[in-house]
Amino acid sequence: MSNAVSALSGAEFQGIAHVKEQGLIGMITLRGDFASDAFKAAAEAVSGCALPEVRKITVADNGNRLAWMSPDEMLLVCDHGAAPQAVADLTERLGGEHSMVVNVSDARAVFRIEGEKCREVVAKVAPVDMADFGVDDFRRTRFAQVPAAFWMSGAESVDVVCFRSVAQYMFDLLSVAAQEGSEVGVY
């Protein structure tokens, strides 16, 4: 089988923050009825994460993350190589439960914005108030002209997910927003 390659093969930019494409990341779209015990049990068992509240993201001991995407959709972030097995496990555990499990890893690109100005870089391109955005928050929004989702992967680090087809646009956008000397000084 051919080797999997991420959208921008780890492209980097250093300015007021460090922007880096994160390489291969596993991502699984999980849809179903959050109120169902069977759905909850399957999601928690396979991800290792607690089911997140509205617009929150939870993290497991092994680094897996489970994010609230919409009232009937979760996003499981895991190792790229672990995604196919996680899909199989989820599908088996969910059985006849009304649900959908899809490996979307290779349809997406992930970027990390790191540094004390990371909030500023996000705030320049997304209509989100970054003042009270915390480490367990998760937000779907737009970054300039493309849809994106992001969370804080650390106190001074933001992870951004977008469609793979707009990865170059996202990288260029974040690089411009993180240009040397471009800090606004709000955060």
């Binding site: 509205v54 617009r55 919409s70 009232p71 209509p127 989100v128 937000r139 779907r140 929004t141 737009r142």
Partner: peptide
Amino acid sequence: PYCGVKGEETEF
């Protein structure tokens, strides 16, 4: 009303 986001027009 579904996710509670208070956003400006361009997100909708």
